[in-house]
Each structure stands twice: as C-alpha cells, then as structure tokens.
C-alpha cells in the first residue's frame, strides 16, 4: 500500500508530472483542462443523492439501477463516461439483513461523478487497511452501530468498477417528495459509513 495521501505533496507531484508531460509533447494543457473539466464539472454527492431518492420513490427505476446502473443513470441525465473510458457502476443495496460499505485498498478508486471528490479519510491507510478486516469497529467509530444480525459486506474496488451504496429509506419519510428525500442523503451514506 502507498502511504498517506497528503494532498499538498500530491498536488506538487501532479504539477511536476503535468509539466513533464506537456514539455514532452505527450499531452497539451488544453487537453488536460478539457478532461478535468468534463470529469469534475457537476461531480457532487448531490448526484448520488438524486439517484437514491429516485430509487426510493420509483420501484421500476430501483430495479433497473440494481440490475445495470450504467443504463439506468441516463434516466436522471447522469453517466459514468466522465473519465478516459466509461466505468462500470455497481449499486449495492442496504437492507434489513445486509449493510454495504466501500473501499479501495490498493489506492483510492471512487465514483467521483456521483459522489464528488472523496473525503481524505477514504484515502487514508488506516481506513483502507482496517475496514476490510474489522468493518464493524470502523463503522462504530463513524457512529454507525449495526445490529448483530446485520451482515456487513465490504466492496473493494480493485479493478474498473465503481460502487455506490443505496442506503435504506429512513422510517417516517412516507410524506416526503423526491427532492426532500434527496436532501436527507449524505456522502457518507453513499459510501456506507453512515446509515443514510
């Protein structure tokens, strides 16, 4: 495993790498800017929250989302095509029996388009090494105590798939519309370190 991703050090390394690539004529500044703009424009957990709220209110959409998220996302004007190649998205549903939580033990793979830039702890060696070994303790440290009869599944995105957790719809939200429901959903809920 690589060590802590201190963002200042990474930023310096990225800048040097960019300069080298541009100087060598491998890529142009304009091309880099275009790719980054396409990737980051609109990248926000608001997107994941909208997907979640739609799934809570539209059973047909939820079924399509869980079966093949890439073909369901365009129904909300979203896609996984922001990067160099389209990434496969797998949405994993929390139920009364199963709680899902995401990690990338090898680096920091994360569905940026749907969840925005990842939190710093997601990239920390502590989170990456501990959540696969003892997820219950890690989740408890996030304030999420799970009943003993709930099975935890940890999804380690080690290849080209990205994951998003579909949290359980909170009790007592029957009267809420899709937009109000979306406001209840947090980034941590979509990673699985919070209930919603």
């Amino acid at each position: 495993m690589s060590g802590e991703h201190a963002s200042s050090t990474v930023a310096v390394r990225v800048r040097r790498l960019e300069e080298r690539l541009v100087a060598a004529g491998v890529v142009g500044d304009d091309q880099l800017d275009a790719i980054l703009t396409k990737l980051l424009n609109g990248a926000s957990p608001v997107n994941g929250a909208r997907v979640t709220a739609r799934a809570w209110t539209d059973p047909g959409f939820k079924e399509r989302l869980l079966a093949d998220a890439n073909t369901a996302l365009p129904e909300l004007g979203l896609s996984m095509t922001g990067g160099i190649q389209e990434q496969r998205l797998k949405v994993v549903e929390n139920t009364t029996e199963v709680h899902n939580v995401l990690v990338c033990t090898l680096c920091s793979c994360y569905p940026i388009g749907l969840l925005g830039p990842s939190p710093s702890w997601y990239k920390s060696e502590a989170y990456r090494s501990r959540v696969v070994r003892d997820p219950r303790s890690v989740l408890a440290e996030f304030g999420l105590e799970l009943p003993d009869d709930v099975t935890v599944t940890v999804w380690d995105s080690s290849a080209e798939s990205r994951y998003m957790v579909l949290p359980r719809r909170p009790d007592g939200t029957d009267g809420l519309g899709e937009e109000e429901l979306a406001r209840l959903v947090t980034r941590e809920g979509l990673i699985g370190t919070a209930a919603v």
Binding site: R133, D134, V152, S158
Partner: peptide
Amino acid sequence: TVYTVAFPARELWGEGTHEVTVDLW
C-alpha cells in the same frame, strides 16, 4: 473477464462474520 469474488472474513483473517468482495481479472 473481470469477476466480482466474495471472500468470507474467516477465510481471509481467520475470524469475523463479514464478507469482502474484490474485483479480479
């Protein structure tokens, strides 16, 4: 082909009741 492969925690760590799924070529 890349496969989603599920490992019981006991298989990986000798203890635990959770499951870890990993994407493997």
